[in-house]
Design a protein around this nucleic acid. Structure first.
Lengths: 138, 138
DNA sequence: TCTTGAACCTCTAGCCACTAGAGATCGTAT
DNA sequence: ATACGATCTCTAGTGGCTAGAGGTTCAAGA
């Protein structure tokens, strides 16, 4: 049994975040000492590691909630879990696509400036003021 | 002179968002009718278009604030504006990089499942539980 | 001129996933 | 026994809006 600080160190999840996860129902309510401090065992450690890994991969708290539920009901869990992962993947791909469009536009705008600093018309500002100067929609 | 609703239609920025921008200082306080309703002219329209375009490109409210200040002080503005745009570009590129790592990992995890749905060990759940199964850090 | 009714006003609260801080209590080492 | 770091709960703040309540104003039609 170890403290929340120890759990935090081992998982690299900050202490208030652990409490937040408990409040959100991602972690079961921890056992307490006589003095009301939380104590954890390896089960808690594993669950928090799972949560952290999923968060790192961009899964929402809600999605993680679903995944945790699925862990507890192994029948049909794989299909549903794969769905959630696939949806997360689609999300990530959509974000990449959008960001690539932005990258193109921003690098075009940035390059447009001659770096002179003395020109009375700044291409960056002009581009932002007038969407017509853009290559694509974004 | 036109109403906030008209401005909203022309810029495709929602009415509460316009009020929010005013509160945040991105838009100057609008003139008012005798009955306290906001009225705008083309100057307001242009500034809001600028803001919307910059937001679409992912600039933060704070960055836009700086850009607007620069508009009003044309000396040295180009250098500073280019800096802000470059920093935004770097941000976007960093995000793309991170998302690409996630994409790889997620597609690997998703493919790991045989789609059977009957296997007692779900690869998605196993992968999330054990970071050691991952190819890379993320 | 009067009456609708859509558009407007302000204010508060909610979203997500935390983060920060106050002020009090606990646990452990000396 | 004391010190002091770790923990507790609670509230509020972050960014960039969005939603809703409850009240007022504007403009068009009768």
């Amino acid at each position: 049994m170890f403290s929340i600080g120890e759990l935090s160190k081992r998982t690299k999840v900050k202490v208030p975040t652990i409490r937040y996860y408990e409040e959100m129902g991602l972690l079961p309510e921890a056992e307490r000492t006589a003095g009301n401090q939380r104590r954890y065992d390896t089960a808690g450690l594993e669950r928090l590691s799972f949560i952290r890994h999923a968060r790192d991969l961009g899964f929402s708290i809600e999605a993680i909630s679903s995944l945790i539920e699925l862990q507890d009901h192994p029948d049909r869990s794989c299909e549903a879990a794969t769905d959630i992962a696939a949806s997360q993947l689609a999300d990530v791909r959509a974000k990449i696509k959008r960001l690539k469009t932005l990258e193109k536009e921003l690098s075009r705008i940035s390059k447009g400036c001659d770096g002179d600093g003395m020109s009375e018309d700044c291409y960056v500002l002009a581009s932002l003021a007038d969407h017509g100067l853009c290559d694509q929609e974004h």
